[in-house]
Write a protein that binds this DNA or RNA. Structure first.
Lengths: 232, 232
DNA sequence: GTTAAATTTTAGGCTAATCTAAAAATAATT
DNA sequence: AATTATTTTTAGATTAGCCTAAAATTTAAC
């Protein structure tokens, strides 16, 4: 039930590498963790005996349901701390990761659930990634570059790829920050610049170059409800 | 500059055992850390090579100035997290210690200084123990049972010895919590009950039995300034 | 379908932190 | 002061997590 810092790092890394149900390779995981393939093999054996993953030598591996559950717990802690650091302690979006990497290993369930409540049950971290709730459920995430956002859909800024001073200056001038609501009104084919709206009566245009560095996310609430209804 | 969880546990324990400048024994430290004397000796050698303590085999040991500096950093982190847990996440005063014990090992200086600022630079943790500031300075602590508080001095509630439901009910009814200002107006010799004041126009009496379970602290600002002036 | 290349695992070692048991030093007792 | 008891240290082993180098397996290439 309780895992070491190292074990948690492996579990989380495997979780991130196996998009959906793909199998993960030893080398890929070693690269991700900046360690050696031999070390990975050692840990795989350990995690297998702890019944957290499917693993057949030379054949790759992936988390089993229990492993995914554990991984979601770690992701939840990581992202809640990121949210806390950015929202309450005013850390920059690019500074939160490393500190959260340490805080995520503090295991107390009560701590995390209370923190979640204190923060108002946020559903996305400062990078726009969804935060699992205390049952491990995540909201639908649909993160795209601003250039790919469909017209007339209100999305929220979730992150910025290029965090240079120049880019940040531009964002600051336009009052764009994490969480800002944003909507694409029109796309100009000539230079692929975008006419956007960030609030009532606030319209301006933004270059393709800037837009492709801005990530936004939006929830597919309606579609999701329909599916839920159908299956009910 | 960076210490392992184990090293930090040892440093903190030594700090707490050496009230003032007393020397600490191997057995005492082993008992404190629930480990074996042989393990303590091993770690002492390590901490000595890292120049954190004075240590001569068989003669006991104590932190040197550098060791005390490191210890104060750990104590600062521990107590700030305790304050955060109690104040923001509504943990009970008796629940904060174990979680803070884990959080204290997250080393980021920036995290702690930002947390300190976010909390409003608190000077005492929920148990009434002083929190070192970012330079390692602590305010004078003068913690006594309410029964021993001199008359007409405003003190602040720092903790409660008996945390039974009955006691907490009484405190709640009187609106007494950590940080509540409190002043003893009169002591009745007959039953040693106290007439106290907890705010403008708020006076009531409290039994000896209750009062001796309430800890308060007050700062000796005037006296301290005098000493400072003299030595300057 | 062999051979070559890449991947993965095994074998054996290293360090930090712990332990037990035995030896050394200090403290207490008569 | 000599002996006993206590405390502390040393010696040697263990475990988790990592490493390098070599062997085993799978994949790719001819």
């Amino acid at each position: 039930m309780n895992y070491s810092v190292s074990e948690e790092d492996y579990i989380k890394a495997i979780y991130h590498l196996q998009r959906d149900q793909q199998t993960v390779s030893t080398n890929a995981l070693a690269a991700e963790l900046k360690t050696r393939p031999a070390s990975v093999t050692d840990m795989l054996k350990k995690l297998k005996t702890k019944k957290l993953l499917h693993y057949r030598p030379y054949q790759g591996f992936k988390l089993n349901p229990e492993g995914r559950k554990v991984a979601l717990g770690i992701v939840r802690r990581h992202r809640l701390w990121e949210y806390f650091l950015a929202e309450k302690l005013k850390f920059g979006w690019n500074e939160v990761h490393d500190v959260a990497e340490e805080l995520e290993h503090v295991g107390s369930r009560k701590l995390i659930d209370r923190l979640d409540e204190y923060l108002g049950f946020p559903r996305f971290d400062p990078h726009g990634d969804p935060i699992p709730d205390n049952a491990g459920k995540m909201h639908v995430k649909n993160q795209v570059k601003l250039t790919e956002l469909p017209l007339n859909i209100t999305a929220r800024v979730s992150g910025v790829a290029d965090q240079s001073a120049d880019m940040l200056e531009l964002l600051k001038h336009r009052h764009i920050a994490i969480g800002t609501n944003i909507e694409v009104i029109k796309k100009f084919d000539f230079d692929q610049s975008l006419e956007i709206k960030t609030g009532p009566g606030i319209f301006f245009s933004i270059s393709k170059q800037a837009a492709q560095n801005i990530f936004v996310h939006y929830e597919l609430e309606k579609e999701f409800r329909c599916i839920a209804k159908r299956s009910a």
